[in-house]
Amino acid sequence: MILDKFKAYGWMLVAVALAALLAVQSVRLANAERDHAVAVGVFNASAARAEREARQLSEAYRTLENQNREQIAKIGAETSAAIAAADAGARRARAAHDSMQRDLADYIATHRRAAQARAAAGQCTPDTAALDLLADLQRRADTRAGELAAIADAARSRGTGCERAYDAGDALNEAGTPETP
Results as ranks from 00 to 15, higher is better:
Leu3Gln: 03
Ala15Gly: 10
Ala17Cys: 15
Ala17Asn: 14
Ala20Ile: 12
Val24Ser: 06
Val24Met: 10
Val27Thr: 06
Val27His: 10
Ala30Ile: 10
Ala30Gln: 07
Ala32Gly: 04
Ala39Ile: 02
Gly41Leu: 04
Val42Asp: 14
Ala45Val: 08
Ala48Phe: 00
Ala48Ile: 02
Ala48Pro: 00
Ala50Trp: 02
Glu51Tyr: 09
Leu57Gly: 07
Ser58Asn: 15
Ser58Pro: 00
Ala60Pro: 06
Ala60Asp: 02
Tyr61Asn: 12
Tyr61Leu: 13
Leu64Tyr: 04
Leu64Pro: 00
Glu65Lys: 04
Asn66Ser: 11
Gln67Tyr: 03
Asn68Met: 08
Arg69Val: 02
Gln71Pro: 00
Ile75Ser: 04
Ile75Pro: 04
Gly76Trp: 02
Ala77Cys: 14
Ala77Val: 08
Ala77Leu: 08
Glu78Asn: 14
Ala81Asn: 09
Ala85Ser: 08
Asp87Arg: 14
Gly89Leu: 05
Ala90Gly: 02
Ala90Lys: 09
Arg91Ile: 05
Ala93Asn: 08
Ala93Ile: 04
Arg94Gln: 09
Ala96Met: 11
Ala96Pro: 02
Asp98Glu: 15
Ser99Ala: 15
Met100Tyr: 07
Gln101Cys: 01
Asp103Gln: 15
Ala105Cys: 01
Ile108Cys: 00
Ala109Tyr: 05
Arg113Tyr: 12
Ala114His: 08
Ala115Trp: 09
Ala119Glu: 15
Ala120Tyr: 07
Ala121His: 03
Cys124Glu: 11
Cys124Ile: 07
Thr125Trp: 02
Ala129Trp: 12
Ala130Lys: 11
Asp132Gly: 11
Leu134Cys: 07
Leu134Ile: 09
Ala135Thr: 11
Ala135Arg: 03
Leu137Cys: 10
Arg139Thr: 07
Ala141Arg: 14
Asp142Ala: 15
Thr143Pro: 03
Thr143Met: 09
Arg144Lys: 15
Leu148Ser: 10
Ala149Thr: 08
Ile151Cys: 01
Ala152Val: 03
Ala154Tyr: 00
Ala154Gly: 05
Ala155Val: 03
Ser157Arg: 00
Ser157Tyr: 03
Arg158Cys: 12
Gly161Lys: 01
Cys162Glu: 06
Ala165Phe: 06
Ala165Arg: 14
Ala165Tyr: 02
Ala165Lys: 05
Ala165Ser: 13
Tyr166Val: 08
Gly169Asp: 11
Asp170Val: 11
Leu172Pro: 01
Leu172Tyr: 13
Leu172Glu: 13
Asn173Phe: 08
Glu174Phe: 10
Ala175Val: 04
Ala175Trp: 07
Gly176Ser: 03
Pro178Val: 04
Pro178Met: 07
Pro178Gln: 01
Thr180Phe: 05
Pro181Leu: 09
Pro181Met: 11
